[in-house]
Simulated assay, not measured.
Amino acid sequence: MRHSLPLRGSRIVGFDEGIMRVVAETRQDAVTRMVRAIGDAGVGLEVLGLLALAGVAAVVVTRSWRVGAAAAASLLLADLIAHNLKQVIGRPRPSGDLTVWPEIQGWAMPSTHAAATSALAMAVFLAVNWKSARTRRTAGTALAAAVVFIGGCMVYLGAHWPTDVLVGWLLGTPVGAAVTWAARRARPNITQIPRP
């Protein structure tokens, strides 16, 4: 049985509604079409399948088995936790003039996109043995920018309230870190399988 948390009338709702009103009033048609296309692609099974195949190919080519395992486990675990928390919290998504993506169904908090992408990014960032501090900083910046971009798209489209995305990030980031830590503890001396 679902138990909805009392979010209506709270400061969180006022904060979220204020931001969403500003977003709704400042949307531009060209930007909305572009972000909507990105959003539609991001939930399409074909695109998700291609991204998964590209990830598997990258792991196989580089023989970065631990990185691949940590990334996949982080993404799946964060998605699972976020999905189950949604059922407990039971927060409705933005509706009416606050959304341009009303086809998205289900509960809003936490954002599974935000949780999964932040977990994936953290796992990749921590699991890869970067060649230099500069490469590590560049990769960290690129990963963080991608996570923020995806979360921003969810808010821009009105698929999520801003706090849904923030909670998703707060959930996914430690999941990615914990899974990577566990992977290192399980096999501390192996980062790649040696080439034959």
Rank of each mutant, 00 (worst) to 15 (best):
R185V: 14
R63L: 08
H113I: 09
A159Y: 05
S111F: 12
V35P: 06
S10R: 01
M34R: 14
V155H: 08
D29K: 13
R66A: 09
K131W: 00
V124Q: 01
A183L: 11
V22W: 14
P196W: 06
A119Q: 02
A58C: 08
A178C: 10
L7E: 03
L51N: 01
I89G: 02
G14S: 03
A54P: 02
P188H: 04
A58V: 12
A139T: 03
A72R: 02
G90N: 01
G158E: 13
A139V: 02
A182C: 10
V147K: 08
R11S: 04
Q105T: 15
T62G: 08
S74N: 03
D16G: 01
L77N: 01
P196K: 05
E46T: 11
V165L: 07
T112Y: 07
G106N: 09
H83A: 07
A146C: 12
A119S: 04
A41K: 02
P110I: 06
T62F: 10
S64L: 10
K131C: 01
A72F: 03
C153W: 09
N129K: 05
G158F: 07
S132K: 00
V165P: 08
G140D: 07
P110D: 09
M122G: 03
G18R: 04
G168S: 06
P102T: 08
S4N: 04
T62V: 10
L76C: 01
M20H: 03
V59Q: 06
A108S: 15
V47P: 00
W107M: 11
H113R: 05
Q87E: 14
A116M: 11
Q192D: 08
L120N: 02
V167A: 14
L80F: 09
A119H: 03
T138Q: 13
T32H: 04
M154L: 12
A119Y: 03
P194H: 06
Q192T: 15
D79Q: 06
G9D: 00
S74T: 02
V22A: 15
W181N: 08
R21P: 05
S64W: 13
A108C: 11
A71V: 04
V13S: 07
W181Y: 13
W101L: 15
G14Q: 08
P188V: 06
V148E: 11
A114L: 04
A116P: 06
N189P: 04
G49F: 00
G55F: 02
T62M: 07
L166E: 05
W101R: 13
L171H: 02
A146F: 15
V61T: 13
